[in-house]
């Protein structure tokens, strides 16, 4: 006979006090957990503002985050997009969007790669890029408490279709052969939208439907991040357009020939 209490309250680091009432009814923690698990990430982020307990659950509880990620896995892959940063480029706001444009997670990153991993003079930008890539990957893994991003496999897949790499911090990302980039009304000839994410299929070389980007009112977005006309990418048949300029690169030893 199964346990009479199949729910997994024990997985939560918060117990006891995490209940809420409505006209006398006390919703058990397990039920609250079940209810919140069903909500999309954006709603959950907003609900952090409800009360401290909810914020703890929705920000810091790894069991909850893992369960949420598992339950919503079918929404992969996600797009990582930087929404803006301060003038010194030290702080970047990443949005993790699913392909419908739904923001599932916002992550703040303080970028100081050079200080932590000094550039090696012999290997030049490769090492720096590697360091940055690792930082970004680490950042991605660490900060996505809701949702997941496909694991980058740079070495195996160097070439036209980098599965996941981030260049010009915040301007574009390539996932599974599709480049996602910030765009604007100028590019797409649409009505005013603060930020759209355009997507371009490298395989078919066709533009795909734009997805709604993050709105960041009150923030000054980096101009080049928001206004990135496709022609500047110099798209060429069968060739990944940004390889020459990409920040990320395989480590030196793998490019011996």
């Amino acid at each position: 006979m199964e346990s009479s209490k199949p729910r997994r309250a024990a997985d939560l680091t918060l117990t006891g006090a995490f209940i809420f009432h409505h006209s006398g009814a006390v919703l058990p923690l397990d039920a609250v957990y079940e209810i919140l698990l069903r909500l999309p990430g954006k709603d959950l982020c907003r609900l952090r503002a409800v009360c401290r307990l909810w914020r703890s659950l929705l920000s810091d509880d790894h069991a909850f985050a893992a369960a949420h990620a598992t339950r919503h896995r079918h929404r992969e892959p996600f797009v990582v997009a930087a929404a803006g940063h301060d003038a010194e480029r030290t702080e970047i706001l990443y949005d993790i969007l699913d392909l419908s444009g739904q923001v599932v997670k916002l992550a703040r990153y303080t970028a100081r790669p050079a200080r932590r991993r000094p550039m090696h003079p012999a290997s030049g930008s490769g090492t720096r890029a590697r360091a940055l890539e690792q930082e970004i990957n680490h950042l991605t893994v660490a900060m996505i408490t809701v949702g997941q991003v496909p694991k980058p496999v740079l070495e195996e897949n160097e070439g036209p279709c980098l599965p996941c790499c981030i260049g010009h911090l915040g301007t574009w990302v390539a996932i599974d052969g599709i480049v996602y980039l910030f765009s604007s009304e100028e590019v797409l000839d649409q009505d005013f939208m603060p930020a759209l994410i355009a997507s371009f299929d490298l395989e078919t070389e066709e533009w795909r439907p734009a997805i709604r980007g993050p709105l960041e009112p009150g923030r000054l977005p980096l101009l080049s991040a928001l206004r990135c006309p496709p022609q500047t990418l110099e798209l060429e048949p069968g060739r990944f357009p940004l390889t020459r300029r990409r920040i990320l690169a395989p480590p030196p030893q793998t490019r011996a020939h």
């Binding site: 954006k42 709603d43 982020c45 907003r46 952090r48 503002a49 914020r55 929404a83 949005d95 444009g101 739904q102 923001v103 916002l106 703040r108 709604r212 993050p214 709105l215 960041e216 009112p217 009150g218």
Partner: peptide, 12 residues
């Protein structure tokens, strides 16, 4: 919190 999560307070 509202400022940090401003994006989450806008409807799609």
């Amino acid at each position: 919190i509202r400022q940090e999560l401003a994006w989450a307070f806008y409807d799609d």
